[in-house]
Design a protein around this nucleic acid. Structure first.
Lengths: 358, 358
DNA sequence: GGAATATGGGACAGCGCTGTCCCGCTCCGG
DNA sequence: CCGGAGCGGGACAGCGCTGTCCCATATTCC
């Protein structure tokens, strides 16, 4: 076994492979890193064997410089610990990797005004595309400097796609929350519910309002109205759900079902209702929205009726759209309804909490 | 405004800045990208102004090649949607960014045998360090090829650190689960509890066993024994908690408190207990472990007594250790105990579910 | 059978940047 | 007033790779 020379940092170079295989670097490059050009089988095998033997891996930075592009897409999210962003990141990562791209993930760590700095930092890597995921439009906070950065990036490097709310003149992918709300209304009407109360989490977030709006439209399609007095504002947390439930109970319960725009809020509400002696879902049913309260392992929230937003799909779609500009609108899968024991069918003879607990 | 020439992909180059400033590329480089050398103020300002004017951003790939190193650290996690990994990634990202490094995140998407391929892919980027986060030792599944990759990386590029279980001969950072279990036992003994039942989630995961072992040790330090018959196996899910609670109830309740090695399991247990008519925590108290059931927003799990593993800190520590080899052991913050309404103080006159619901 | 064409290996410049080397200028001490 | 040291700008090679160009050989066609 011959001693091969190395990159300064230690990795064998293409030239080492070429020497070991007795071919030119050009040929080695064509075999190992792809090219239009053909290479005779004999040479090809020699190169592959040599590469294996010296343990060659392409130096991506060098390749990027020679080729003039770096096969990466950048993703800026809020807080990666938040399921909303995690699911988007998951889908984006999967799609990027499917296409042979690297996914560079950056987190604003909740401070949305950092978006601008992160984008500036990211540009140094010359990614092919840039995806920003947000829960609300941050233009006001991040200011016009962010816009400059985004436009600069689009001019020089690649496409920018925003998942969520954007006032910037870039492609935006919005979650189908209106549709989800509407679908949920239809499903619940189908189960026989007629008297609704809504717990609206975090009114400032457009998605939440969309869910409510869609829900209202879905209800009125079934001839049911939802007066404002039946909408309770809640903080976006378990505690928020508990508090809203307390307020609701104080008003004197008269609804058949509480529909929350967030699963966590629904969970808090259930908690509080049970504390007050009500049997959920027999005395009052509950539905949520999001299907992202728990970790992604299987059946955990089966019991709670909820809507699963296609967040992974949105992340993947954003990467796709950023890499090859869609000719027309981006088709987005509809939110999926999950019916669980928390909303028993009122059109049948109910056996109580069916599907609950086993 | 003069037309500046551009990189093929469009970004202005250092040479463009130099020309605009009327200096040499060397000088521009020294000003913009750092160097030991001094630059006279007049030149410095001219360069900075020119850079601003043409909108220069360093081409990281080119810089990496010239400098011989790429300022990145790679992180391989299981499923980023899992809070366990998300919190580690969060800490790692923050630490990397604090040090001016890029964090390249890859996910095995649950298929741990992919670790090997991912590591191979990552090596092409020539990161300075490599961090693998796992819940269990995957050597058996990923095989010796992974080990080869890791050792190859350590030989050629940088250090490898594993967060979690590792049989590879690399630095490993283990979560302080034993300590956490022990601390929890101490705290609960202090609150006056004496009759315990444990719900052990996912027995195959070493962390879970550590929690149990630590808990046992903590109990026996207080003179309390935990017979095996008081340990219920549970699937790691809400449903798993419900099922374990069902089994426990069938055995005839006699414990003062159920301690679960996972928050989700605790939550499922609470659910089931309440369904069966028991009042939690008056009839029976519940404690969990993990403090990572919900999203990271504030107070959401305040009610549930639990242990918060320092996962962010572990991620950060892994990056630190990977970048500058620690002289000695890595100090790891202790798990933090959070006491909530689910475990009222039995040594005082209790007012029932204090702290619960408001 | 000879010319035109196809095939595929190799030489080489250059991607954008930095570290080293060189050199001219200024400043200072003897 | 001269020599030496210090300061700081600029030239230049080269990081590892690829795309283009060149050319030798094989193949095809009239």
């Amino acid at each position: 076994m011959t001693v091969v020379s190395k990159e300064p940092n230690g990795s064998p170079r293409l030239a080492d492979v070429a020497r070991a295989a007795g071919v030119s670097p050009s040929t080695a490059s064509r075999v190992l890193n792809g090219s239009v050009r053909q290479v005779a089988d004999e040479y090809r095998e020699r190169v592959l064997a040599a590469a294996e033997q010296v343990g060659y891996t392409t130096n991506l930075a060098a390749q990027a410089m020679a080729r003039g592009r770096y096969p990466a897409v950048a993703l800026v999210v809020g807080d990666i610990r938040d399921q909303f962003f995690a699911r988007i990141a998951f889908g984006a990562m999967r799609e990027a990797s499917r296409r042979g791209y690297i996914l560079n993930l950056l987190s604003t760590e909740g401070d949305e005004s950092r978006e601008r700095d992160l984008v500036q930092d990211l540009r140094r890597q010359r990614p092919q595309a840039l995806v920003l995921a947000r829960k609300r439009d941050t233009t006001a906070r991040a200011g016009s400097r962010l816009m400059e950065q985004l436009l600069g990036f689009q001019r020089e490097s690649g496409r920018v796609v925003i998942v969520g709310e954007a006032s910037e003149p870039v492609l935006a992918i919005r979650p189908p929350d209106f549709d989800g709300g509407k679908a949920l209304a239809g499903a619940l009407l189908g189960l026989g519910y007629r008297r609704f109360v809504v717990f609206l989490a975090d009114e400032a977030v457009p998605s939440e309002r969309d869910r409510l709006d869609g829900f209202r439209v879905g209800l009125s399609a079934g001839g049911v109205a939802l007066p404002d007095s039946h909408v309770y504002r809640a903080a976006h947390s378990v505690t928020g759900g508990m508090e809203a439930a307390t307020a609701y109970l104080a008003d004197g319960p008269n609804a058949e079902i509480i529909v929350s725009t967030e699963d966590v809020v629904a969970w808090g509400a259930i908690h509080r209702l049970r504390e007050s002696g009500l049997v959920v879902p027999d005395d009052i049913a509950v539905a949520g929205y999001g299907h992202r309260l728990f970790s992604p392992f299987g059946d955990e929230v089966d019991w709670l009726t909820t809507i699963r937003s296609p967040l992974e799909e949105m992340g993947a779609a954003a990467v796709s759209a950023a890499l090859d500009p869609p000719a027309s609108d981006i088709p987005m899968p509809s939110p999926r309804i999950h019916l669980g024991g928390s909303t028993p069918d009122r059109t049948r003879f109910s056996d109580g909490g069916s599907g609950c607990g086993r």
